[in-house]
C-alpha cells in the first residue's frame, strides 16, 4: 500500500486480530450482541459503527486543542450523538424495516464504549489522518466479530443467510433437512450470543498464548 506507511497499516490491522476491541479490549459489547441473531442487521450495525467512528475520530481530532479537558466527555457525547442521529435518519429513510428491527440499538451506538474509548485514548492525542485510520480499524475489528457471530447464529439457528435458505427448506424437508437435520432454535435466543463470543475468545486465545490472562 503506497498510501499508507507501515505504522499506519498497523493501526488498521492490529484491531482486527491481536488488539480486537471486543475480544481483547472488552469494549463495545453493549450494543453488539443483541442484534446478531441475523447476518443482515449485524452488517448494517458494523457499517454504521464504521461511519460513526471514522467521522467522529476526525472531528474530535480536529477539535482536540480547543476542548477544555473538564467538559470533554460531554463534548464527545454530543459529537457522537449528532453522528448517530444522521445514521438513524438515513436508516429510517432508506431501510425502514431494518431500522425498526434494530430499534434502540442504533441509539445505543452513542454509549458504545469503543467510540468513547478511542476518542479518549487516541483521537485526543493524535493527528487527523491517523485518528481516522485508528477509528476505522477499530470499527472494522468490531464489525468482524459482529459478522462472525451473526453468521453462525443465523446459519445454525434458522438455517438461512441473509434470509436465503442455504440449507434447504425445513418445512418441506429438502436439502440437509431431508437427512434429519434440525435447526438449533437456541442459537436465535440472546444467551447464545454471549456463549458464541466466549467461544471465539477461547479459540483466539488458544491460538495466541500471549493473550492469556492470569
Amino acid at each position: 500500500m503506497g498510501l499508507l506507511s507501515k505504522k499506519d497499516t498497523k493501526l488498521i490491522t492490529d484491531p482486527l486480530a491481536d488488539n480486537n476491541p471486543i475480544t481483547i479490549q472488552v469494549l463495545g459489547i453493549c450494543s453488539a450482541l443483541a442484534i446478531t441473531a441475523q447476518l443482515k442487521p449485524s452488517i448494517v450495525m458494523a457499517i454504521s459503527v464504521i461511519f460513526v467512528m471514522g467521522v467522529g475520530n476526525i472531528v474530535i481530532s480536529l477539535m482536540r486543542n480547543i476542548i477544555p479537558s473538564k467538559i470533554r466527555i460531554i463534548v464527545q457525547l454530543i459529537v457522537v450523538a449528532t453522528l448517530v442521529i444522521i445514521v438513524d435518519q438515513v436508516l429510517k429513510a432508506f431501510a425502514y424495516s431494518l431500522s425498526k428491527e434494530l430499534s434502540v440499538f442504533i441509539g445505543l451506538i452513542i454509549t458504545n464504549c469503543i467510540i468513547m474509548g478511542r476518542f479518549e485514548a487516541f483521537a485526543l492525542g493524535n493527528g487527523v489522518w491517523r485518528s481516522f485510520l485508528d477509528g476505522v480499524g477499530n470499527a472494522l475489528g468490531y464489525g468482524v466479530i459482529l459478522i462472525i457471530v451473526g453468521f453462525f447464529r443465523e446459519l445454525l439457528g434458522s438455517g438461512t443467510l441473509f434470509g436465503l435458505k442455504v440449507l434447504g427448506d425445513s418445512v418441506e424437508k429438502t436439502g440437509l433437512y431431508a437427512y434429519g437435520y434440525e435447526n438449533n432454535g437456541f442459537m436465535v435466543l440472546p444467551p447464545m450470543a454471549l456463549i458464541v463470543v466466549g467461544i471465539i475468545i477461547w479459540i483466539q486465545r488458544s491460538r495466541n498464548k500471549a493473550l492469556i490472562e492470569d
Binding site: 475480544t23 456463549i195 475468545i201 477461547w202 486465545r205 490472562e213
Partner: peptide, 10 residues
C-alpha cells in the same frame, strides 16, 4: 485460554 474474559462470557 478461557481464563478471565472468556469464562465470564460463558
Amino acid at each position: 485460554a478461557l481464563r478471565g474474559l472468556g469464562i465470564t462470557f460463558i
